[in-house]
Simulated scan of single mutants.
Amino acid sequence: MTVGSDLSQIVRSDTVSPSENFRQWRAGLASLFEAAPLDGAVETFRADLHCLNLGSFLIGMSKASPQVFCRDRSLVSAVGVDHLLIQLYVSGECEFKVDGSQSRGGTGDIVCFDLSRPMSSQAGDLETISLVVPRQLVRLPRRAFDAVHGAVLDGATTLGVLLREHLLSMAKVAPRLGAHDGKLVTEAAAALISAGLSAAVSGPAASESELIGSGLQSIQSFIERNLTDEALSPETIMRHFGLSRSVLYRTFEPLGGVADYIRDRRLDRAFLQLASIGKGRGGVSRLAYTNGFASEAAFSRAFRQRFGMNPREAILESDRRAAGKSHAQDNWMQAWLRGLSATGSR
């Protein structure tokens, strides 16, 4: 049975058939993952889910049968969000693949997935507490954000224990939170999540300057603010920060070079806008020029090189996926994800 409101959704396995239980579960998660029973046998499927929309973040408590999950590029573009999904594995384990690398999380571990990037996973019987948070709530430098997708915080570490206990407590009190309390809980959770993810991607011995004070972070923030400006280039960065060409290039060498970094950030931004651009005439041009490219041709070449398809094909695929989701009456997650904000309240 599905019980729902604007702020709360519940999927229960004890009042419906396994096939109906799976249909409701799959529909509820459709904007996060494509889900399927691990053995393909829907007749033995069981899943329970309680999700709450607290304005500035979403929290969900779930317990489910073994499954496989997939979030591919077409789903990423159809949903068009770049929030972070933080999952505590209360019990069970999950193997997952991100950026071509295989990893796993077990009981007590906390795992982060970037919803602007593809992933796939396979889980046994799994109980989780999950948070979806806008990335603006998480205080990390851009360099660290590039590494959080698939990052695992060991549940046995000091920060792992602190964050685990905080998430367990949040799950208990979340149904009773009001607007003022929700804001305070959000601030506390954001601080712990930021510290936990910093440790997961940088190691516990990372210095404060590495995490929040680097010159690279300042330059990356400048780039993010100016991605739509066609004039953004290594030269404008050098002038703004008073850097020599050799210093700037050496700073971005670990990220593949400053010019490639700017281009890839523009392309990633354009990819997340596919669902909102529409398939009418001029869509590709709008994507190109609103993301700082000098011409539609240059944008199309770079887009195909990065994503393996041209922008028009990607727009059509995104539109197809989005249209399919809009017809599902119980796809409440899509509206919740789109409405999530770093300053929201109930």
Score class of each variant (00 low, 15 high):
Leu287Cys: 02
Asp48Arg: 15
Ile237Tyr: 04
Ile315Phe: 09
His180Trp: 11
Asn21His: 08
Ser341Met: 04
Ala322Asn: 07
Arg135Leu: 02
Ser65Ile: 08
Ala190Arg: 11
Ser221Asp: 14
Val132Ile: 13
Arg142Lys: 08
Ala144Leu: 11
Ile59Phe: 08
Ala205Arg: 13
Thr128Arg: 13
Gly40His: 03
Ser295Asn: 03
Val284Ile: 08
Phe299Cys: 03
Leu88Ala: 02
Val284Glu: 00
Ile86Pro: 01
Asn226Val: 07
Asp48Thr: 14
Gln67Arg: 10
Ala342Tyr: 08
Pro18Asn: 09
Thr15Trp: 13
Arg104Cys: 10
Ser103Phe: 03
Gly106Leu: 03
Thr186Asn: 14
Glu313Cys: 03
Ile193Leu: 06
Arg26Leu: 08
Glu317Leu: 09
Asp72Gln: 08
Phe222Ile: 06
Ala195Trp: 06
Asn53Asp: 08
Arg139His: 10
Leu29Thr: 00
Ser295Ile: 10
Gln9Glu: 14
Ala179Arg: 09
Ala64Gln: 13
Trp336Glu: 01
Leu85Asp: 05
Ile219Arg: 05
Gly100Pro: 03
Arg73Val: 08
Ala188Arg: 15
Met119Leu: 12
Ser214Leu: 07
Asp114Ser: 08
Gly105Met: 06
Gln334Arg: 10
Glu165Gly: 02
Arg164Gly: 04
Asn310His: 12
Ile237Glu: 02
Trp336Leu: 06
Leu337Ser: 01
Arg225Tyr: 09
Gly124His: 05
Ser8Gly: 12
Leu168Ile: 14
Leu115Cys: 00
Gly40Glu: 07
Phe307Gly: 05
Leu163Ala: 00
Val284Tyr: 01
Gly196Ser: 04
Ser91Phe: 10
Ser91Arg: 14
Gly257Cys: 09
Thr186Lys: 14
Pro134Lys: 00
Met170Trp: 12
Arg71Gly: 02
Glu313Asp: 11
Val173Thr: 10
Gly124Tyr: 04
Ser214Asp: 10
Val133Pro: 00
Ser244Asp: 15
Asn226Ser: 12
Thr228Ser: 15
Leu232Val: 03
Arg281Met: 12
Leu153Phe: 04
Gly339Pro: 03
Val138Ser: 06
Arg269Asp: 01
